[in-house]
Simulated assay, not measured.
Amino acid sequence: MLKKFLKPMKLPAPADWGVLILRVGFSLLMLTHGYAKLQNLLAGDHSFADPIGIGEELSLYLTIFAEFGCSILLILGLFSRAVLIPLIFTMVVVLLVIHAEDPFDKKEHALSFLIVYVTLFLTGPGRFSVDSGLYK
């Protein structure tokens, strides 16, 4: 069952190129957010929001894991559907908790990432991914 979940689906060649562009492009954009948080953490700044009540420090670690670590794996196309789960969860929290009371223009950034991540979750990483090579 796990192998079926991780295995990329066959897409037409143009769709594979589109998935590659989405996967790498949005991961690079997200990587900048995670890298900034990682730099703050390494500089000794452990302050962070606690939107779901698990503590500031754990929230920071999990957010860095999602935004930085999972983005690197998604660029490679390695364990793509699995690493999309923390990214989707993070964007849902940003959208519905962090920016819950904000106007739509503040929510739009998280919503854009969420739409792409859900799309990639449904399509898989495409032919140009490590996953594709692993599950041939």
Rank of each mutant, 00 (worst) to 15 (best):
V83Q: 05
E101V: 09
D102K: 15
D45P: 11
H109D: 11
G25H: 08
Y35K: 00
H99T: 11
G69E: 03
Y35Q: 01
S80I: 01
V83C: 08
L42S: 07
N40Y: 09
S80F: 01
G25I: 06
R127K: 15
E56Y: 05
L60E: 07
G18L: 11
G44I: 02
V19P: 10
A13L: 15
G18Q: 06
E57F: 14
P51N: 09
Q39I: 07
G77D: 05
K37N: 02
G69Y: 04
T119A: 15
K10A: 15
S132F: 13
I88E: 12
L2I: 11
L134N: 02
L73V: 06
G126Y: 06
S80L: 04
K4P: 03
P103T: 14
A43T: 12
V24L: 04
D45C: 13
V97Q: 05
D105R: 14
Y117A: 12
I98N: 12
A110N: 11
S27M: 00
L42R: 01
V19L: 08
G55C: 01
E101D: 15
Y35A: 08
L28G: 06
I98P: 06
Y135F: 13
H109K: 15
P103S: 14
V83H: 01
A100M: 12
V92L: 15
K4Y: 12
I88C: 12
G69N: 02
D16H: 08
G55F: 03
F5A: 06
L74E: 06
F65R: 00
L60Y: 00
P8R: 11
I75E: 00
G25V: 03
T63N: 05
I75G: 00
G53K: 11
L96P: 00
S71L: 04
I52T: 08
L42K: 03
F113Y: 15
M1K: 13
K7Q: 15
F26Q: 10
K136G: 07
L76F: 08
L76Y: 04
V130H: 02
I115S: 09
Y117G: 08
F121I: 09
G124C: 10
K37E: 05
I64V: 12
I21D: 07
E67C: 06
P103W: 14
M9W: 15
I98D: 06
F121R: 03
P86Q: 05
